[in-house]
Design a protein around this nucleic acid. Structure first.
Lengths: 260, 260
DNA sequence: ACTTTCAGTTCGTTC
DNA sequence: GAACGAAGTGAAAGT
């Protein structure tokens, strides 16, 4: 830790902030503050105790005592200004494109720390939608037996079809993959099927592939003669790991941690 | 601040965590750690220095030195477990529905603080989509002259219509309001217009009201005989403030902070 | 508790 | 640099 100041006065805090705010340090401030935001929208947050974090890429977060989300933030800041008097310390974080500003008025500062975090490792994550795509390409049977993948990301005037395939009777099959399907997913699939019907004529099947489904969306889907196939996300992840592990040196997905 | 421990050993840290983790305290831990997540997806994060925050509603965040977003998190946790030996301190945060677990393995702890943040004030925000609704209801001319609002949030089998109105020729007008319109918005509006055509017959107009628009979406819209009206978000916010200020005691949106 | 929809969405990729 | 779509989306409001 570079600095740890407990209950600093505003002068002291201003000096530290002035020194470290524009450099690559992580600054944490616990204190009583008010926050105003103006830009794409406008917000106001009255006095309360919060944790303010300024990150090394200049992003700033104002976290309240609850919630995953910060109450206010600025993803990346162009310029910081700090000013203080006897009553308060005012921190402004501005950026352009879009033009917006977050203003934090500290009325009390309980703790101010400055640290430099070193973190070169990337987050490896599995279970994205694109993993389902690859999983289908690897093993089309998870959607339907005897399915042959013709093309992935096939372009149509209505957008890109996730997977374009033919079934055992040589029917064309439009496959739309969604992690969280909803009404719009159905409309989107419908559009693709319509496009393909114009291009190829004949019976075109549309299949929505997703790890979960609700009754209403399923009805909506079936009303339109479209189909649903459920995939197990754990299978997708497992298949991905099998691929990873078959390639030496990519065993990044080590032992499982059960939720028990 | 309840506690500030610099470079605590794992025993000490475990004791403090054990005492405060399950209670309504904000805990900040700066340290070297690895993180695994398994649940809706699966992720792995190698050793790196990070800031871990446990909030008072039991949410937990793992923030790296950069970015607005945490690298790992758990929105609300059902149970925490802490275990330590000479080598590491392991913190597990589990929840059900969905079943998932975040496991943080600390290899070093630089700073551990425990605080209780008091924050009773709500974030007041203006510039949401619903503010555009109210703005239209207040002054329908911003969409089109001589427009009369019939109903807001009108229910149809296809969902809720934002604003339902009649124009100067007594045509029914379906208005869909979007902050960030896209293809799906057009499909949605189309659905509503189709529904209203069935219910009322006759010429039904569909208008998409948004603060911005792209060429492709606009084309797609106009191909379907639908219309677009641009609104200025600043006008919406201003109109809202005018309403607020006309009502005593609601002047929460004080002076503007320019981005200069 | 579940569904639906919006978000100052953010973030990445692609054109 | 704009635009398009996914996210371990999260959060709030309605049912």
């Amino acid at each position: 830790m570079k600095k740890i100041l407990e209950n600093p006065d505003f002068d002291e805090a201003e000096e530290v902030l002035h020194e470290y705010l524009k450099r690559e340090f992580t600054i944490q401030v616990n204190g009583l503050c008010m926050v105003n935001y103006q830009g794409r929208a406008k917000s106001k947050l009255d006095k309360g105790e919060r944790l303010v974090i300024k990150k090394q890429d200049s992003a700033i977060l104002v976290h309240g005592p609850d919630n995953y989300q910060p109450k206010n933030w600025q993803p990346e800041v162009d310029s910081y200004t700090v000013k203080s008097d006897e009553e308060e310390l005012v921190l402004k974080a501005k950026r352009t494109n879009p033009d917006e500003v977050v203003e934090i008025r500290f009325k009390e500062i309980d703790l101010l720390t400055v640290d430099q975090l070193v973190d070169k490792s990337d987050l490896k994550i599995r279970g994205h939608e694109v993993d389902i795509h690859e999983s289908i390409e690897e093993d089309p049977d998870i959607v339907e037996e005897c399915l042959k993948v013709v093309e992935r990301e096939k372009e149509t005037p209505a957008g890109f079809i996730d997977v374009f395939a033919r079934d055992e009777n040589e029917n064309y099959v439009v496959i739309e993959v969604k992690r969280n399907p909803d009404y719009n997913t159905v409309l989107q699939l419908q559009r693709y099927v319509d496009e393909i019907e114009e291009e190829f004529s004949g019976n075109i099947r549309g299949i929505l592939v997703a790890p979960k489904m609700t009754d209403k969306v399923l009805n909506y889907l079936e009303e339109r003669g479209l189909e649903f196939v459920e995939v197990d996300m754990e299978d997708v992840i497992a298949s991905y790991e099998a691929i990873d592990n078959s390639q030496k040196g990519l065993q990044d997905f080590g032992p499982d941690y059960s939720t028990d």
